[in-house]
Write a protein that binds this DNA or RNA. Structure first.
Lengths: 205, 205
DNA sequence: GTCTATATTTGGATAGAC
DNA sequence: GTCTATCCAAATATAGAC
């Protein structure tokens, strides 16, 4: 009968701790976001935090559990079909990536990842496998299919995937940095599209 | 008459503090590298540190003072001449970048930069100006000259500079990550050269 | 579930003897 | 220049009352 039941048994305080922690971890990093700051922001005492999480580490794990989401995560099934779209596939992939770059929640996760990259070995490994290797795999498969269908030139699919992905990453890093300081990103608004044009011109037959 | 005079009046202890701090800051970040750890590694007490530096912040500034070195830093003068080499220019630039990526000292500075990027606004600004903008400027000038001399296709020089630089950066980040965990980088040994080939094929006439 | 109080550790920094 | 001793602040975490 409390307000909490409205959203289905959600513990309001725990949810708030998670939300506040997500923001603070993504701004100050693991060390910088102290239990004190979190508690203060939530509006409770430090000790009350421990009624919901056993330790700071547990909060962090809860925050970071969904850190790796990738474009085409739900579309993996139709990779063959998608690849036959040629340039359309490249555009779709890029737009998904662009959406992530500008999505508030994804932005925080990306920032957290960058901040903790050299402090957290597990995150480093996940960055390599989930962030890099997984995207390279999807892209390579798509480009391989395009080559088989004479849509693009025959080259090493991994290599061109790398070329394509690296620029997307660099753009995203720049956007994230600028937004962190509330700088305008209008100068970068069309860069995704320009990247697609350059890249497609480079690989198309 | 002490050993210190051999290298010209260098204060041995201060040098050692600087060296140890550089390593620790680049592995643990500013917060993680405590005065205690630095002192312990140097082999003196914490208080003795303050005979050489007024604060931890001062040590960091000394460590980070040479964080931004760029390929072609000393060669800026001959940009016109260099650009006329066409592919040779791109190869030279890439090799300089590759050297930096594998140079022990540059590696530490790059790691430090990445670790502190979201914690230190000044570093962020310098990353944007010194690391990004400066390289884009040099590259754009060179590519513009190549276009004037019909060595490469006419396009937006800034755009292709961005395409070129972003991949170099991504490769460097990957190398730095892998070396941080002592992983082998042999899989990346020829990737710089492959990038040059792909990129040059994309822009050449 | 939240509070007060407290234990414990770590970290930056200073005072003063040698 | 280095040491011992010490101070102070911040941080994680626990105990026990309400």
């Amino acid at each position: 009968m409390t307000e909490n039941t409205t959203l289905g048994r959600k513990n309001g305080t725990k949810q708030k701790i998670l939300k506040v922690s997500t923001t603070l971890f993504s701004e100050l990093g693991y060390r910088g976001a102290s239990i004190r700051k979190i508690a203060k922001e939530v509006g409770i005492r430090e000790s009350a935090i421990y009624n919901h999480y056993a330790s700071k580490e547990e909060i962090f794990l809860d925050v970071a559990k969904d850190i790796f989401s990738s474009p085409f995560s739900s579309k993996d099934l139709n990779i063959q079909e998608e690849a036959l779209k040629g340039k359309g596939f490249v555009q779709n992939f890029t737009m998904q990536y662009k959406l992530l770059a500008f999505d508030k929640s994804s932005e925080k996760m990306f920032r957290l990842l960058m901040i903790e990259l050299f402090a957290n070995k597990e995150l480093r490994e996940q960055f390599m496998s989930e962030f890099h290797a997984k995207n390279i795999k999807v892209l390579s498969e798509a480009f391989f299919i395009m080559m088989q269908n004479s849509i693009i030139k025959s080259q090493d699919p991994m290599m061109i995937s790398y070329e394509f992905l690296s620029t997307l990453f660099y753009i995203r890093l720049q956007i994230t940095l600028m937004r962190f300081d509330n700088d305008s990103t209008t100068a970068l608004s069309t860069i995704f599209e320009k990247h697609v044009e350059f890249f497609w011109d480079s690989i198309k037959i």
